[in-house]
């Protein structure tokens, strides 16, 4: 038991050092989140869509990747976009990329996991946001038609 306590002390110190080494980058990311939350408004996101499905889906994925905030914000913006006639494909892609992609946390991801992991994961997440948005919208409209 005392051996475990000694080990716990050592590993706690080691863990503290690890967190300390990423702290500056973590604070930088939080600082960027604050800037984006304040300066990038939902109105700005609205303005970039033009109701062409593929164009909107690609833009929505990018807009979601750039946006930051609590997930519910993406539902509110998504709901407003739907009301304005933006396709469900684009709205779903936006909701997905909002939580799975984060341009501003890429430097942190890069410094912790390395370049290859970060590039592979983000490219796949971008692609999957589009694929899943497409499949979800198709399946939802099929199921809604079936059950109504």
């Amino acid at each position: 038991m005392p051996r475990n306590v000694q080990r716990l002390k050592e590993t706690s110190l080691q863990t503290f050092k690890t967190l300390q080494s990423i702290a500056p980058m973590l604070f930088a990311v939080m600082g960027l989140v604050g800037i984006f939350e304040t300066f990038v408004t939902p109105e700005m996101i609205h303005k970039i869509f033009n109701a062409h499905a593929i164009h909107d889906m690609l833009l929505a994925t990018t807009a979601g990747a750039v946006s930051v905030g609590q997930p519910f914000l993406s539902y509110i913006i998504g709901g407003e976009l739907l009301d304005e006639g933006i396709s469900m494909y684009a709205v779903t892609a936006f909701i997905l990329s909002f939580v799975t992609l984060g341009i501003i946390q890429i430097p942190l991801e890069f410094s912790i996991f390395g370049a290859r992991f970060t590039i592979v994961r983000n490219l796949l997440s971008f692609l999957f946001a589009i694929v899943i948005a497409y499949m979800t919208t198709l399946s939802t409209s099929f199921l809604s038609g079936y059950f109504s």
Binding site: I22, M25, A28, G31, I35, S111
Partner: peptide, 20 residues
């Protein structure tokens, strides 16, 4: 190197706040 990159990034963000 990781520490250095973190501090550089933090300085850039602080600079950005200063400009803004």
């Amino acid at each position: 190197m990781k520490n250095k990159t973190g501090y550089i990034m933090l300085l850039i963000v602080l600079g950005l706040y200063g400009i803004l």
